[in-house]
Amino acid sequence: MSTLMAFVAQVLHLLVVMVAAPTLAGLSRVLADRLAGRDGPPLLQPWWELARLMRKQPVIAENASVVTRYAPQLVLTVTLVTAMLAPGFTLGMALAPLGDTLTIAGLLVWARLALLLAATDAGTAEGGVAAIRASRIAFLAEPALLLVLLGLSALAGTGNLDAIIDGQRDGGLVNGAAIEMAIAALAILVWAAVATPPLDAAFSGRDLAMVHLSDDVRRVVWFTLVTTIAVPAGIAPPDAGPLAWALGLLAWVVRLTVASGAMAGIGLLVGRTDARRALGVAALLGGLALVLSLAGAGPA
């Protein structure tokens, strides 16, 4: 793929993610409500909410510092960069060489910590308690994610996300048991990440809109990551043209829809389960996947 095409693909990818993010959030809500037998909000409700928030005047606590002021921008920036690194409809986008799995995990941590700090910034009881609760959930989720990603890197012989997906597309990474465990762990992590609401109590108006948009983008990133690694069918190879892109786009939309339907179904089945219990299983699966992939085949 020429450099120009790689850039075009990258920009297109970002645009698709931005458009898909609130829509997918609406779809998840609709699906969850329909499965529960309720009517649910309209599909485009998140868009209207974002537009309404953008018009509202933000209110900032007296005691808030520069952290509250700039955290929404930081979180949105970091999440968008993460989204640019996770291939959706084609491989070989312009930023593919930056797509190191551990770096992606680090960027997700950045967004989480910025929100945690903003929650403690005003000095309210509610913010502090919310920060503590969120930090306790990350206790297992973050190491589990790192282990899963390291296991996938060990299987593929490279830490690059593009190369990992390419390896899967070319007939699967060799070690079957390990990759299934890794994908299962990743799915649990996605469920836990999507099921926990964002720490948004410190924000209002446009800032809140930015935090909600980042949460929607994060959902797209998670769904894209897990589904593309599990079923990379349809994704365009690095040197493909616009026709393959269109096909890849279609496959991506199907993957995202199926993923949000599956998450809604799981949400209905497990109800309000404590995320930490599921995350323990994810950590266990992640560790096992890593050990199996280190012990089994791979570049010697």
């Binding site: 005047q57 933000p58 209110v59 900032i60 606590a61 007296e62 108006g205």
Partner: peptide, 8 residues
């Protein structure tokens, strides 16, 4: 947008 309001 509208400028932020600082409040207790």
């Amino acid at each position: 947008g509208p400028p932020p309001r600082v409040s207790p």
